[in-house]
Design a protein around this nucleic acid. Structure first.
Lengths: 179, 179
DNA sequence: GTCTATAAATTGATAGAC
DNA sequence: GTCTATCAATTTATAGAC
């Protein structure tokens, strides 16, 4: 309901009706509407932290590229299947720009996201698959692209997202000659 | 005020006080709060349309890359200087996911944005500066990156945005060898 | 064009019974 | 744990005088 209507346009009365209890019964579980919103934020953050974790252990020269491609493809498919998750997360991002309490947590997630990709790219350099020049910036490009694909899917814009991701991945690889 | 607090948390009473008139006086100019929000949306859309227009006429082999770089640098500097514009636009994007009236207009902006960059990239191919393979996807990458840089600036995340943009531009150029 | 006064509805939250 | 009843505040919006 928060994803659908936003926090302000979702009243406790609506939530209570949705759950099938009375409005005051909500206060048995949450001290206030804000606390409820906080709790949901924590839950969503946990979920994102799990989803975005990348393990580098099993990656070799032979499967590195395919792993990177699949990581993006999987995210694209998930976003296309269920936009609600991204929708409510964007709601929280906007909330974070107005409330440091959420921003602190959001920045942690972002940081871990960028670090995960940076680690992956540096590993790619190590095994000789990724071009070593400006690795950090290359890593940033991939994060920017995959993250924003989710935002554009949210707006219903139909684009060759998988092709775009493939091209982005290709751009960081070694031995790809642009001419 | 809408950028700072969001639409719902900005009451007409607050706006009236800010402008220095009484609340009912607002209704002399706007039929409802929603109409006021609609009007502002149109104004912002116009502004974006102007800002994002790219003229290809004066571009040559010698200044193409620098133009592309400067276009991004200028956007990054503007976003860093004033986050309010992007903040309220994100507010409208979220509104658009819940209201087709805004989505129609938003999609027009997006389409023109992608088309502008596509035109630019195809021009780059024509004059022999941009690699001709998967031009559309390369164009998409640039849009995704420059657009999302604005979003990350909004969250206060400090990153080498200009370097990332430079790397993104480099990745579409011809004659750059990745090894 | 702008004001005061006020309507009508909704909201988050509490009191207190069971 | 859940309910009914209710409060206090705020909201958008209107009526009508000047």
């Amino acid at each position: 309901m928060f994803a659908e209507n936003g926090f302000d346009k979702t009243s406790l009365a609506m939530i209570a009706k949705g759950v099938g209890i009375s409005k005051p019964a909500i206060y048995y579980y949450f001290d206030s509407k804000e606390k409820l919103i906080d709790f949901l934020f924590e839950e969503i953050c946990k979920e994102i932290m799990i989803q975005s974790t990348i393990t580098v252990d099993d990656l070799t020269v032979n499967n590195f590229v395919q792993f990177l491609l699949n990581f993006g493809f999987k995210m694209i498919e998930e976003q296309e299947r269920d936009v609600y998750f991204n929708k409510i997360f964007n709601e929280y991002i906007l909330l974070a720009t107005r409330n440091d309490k959420y921003m602190t947590q959001l920045n942690k997630i972002q940081k871990s996201y960028f670090e995960n990709f940076s680690m992956l790219m540096n590993y790619g350099v190590k095994i000789g698959v990724v071009n070593r020049d400006n690795v950090e910036n290359k890593s940033n490009i991939l994060v920017m692209v995959i993250d924003n694909i989710g935002n554009f899917i949210l707006t219903g814009l139909e684009l060759d997202y998988k092709g775009t991701w493939e091209e982005a991945v290709k751009s960081v690889l070694k031995g790809v000659r642009n001419d």
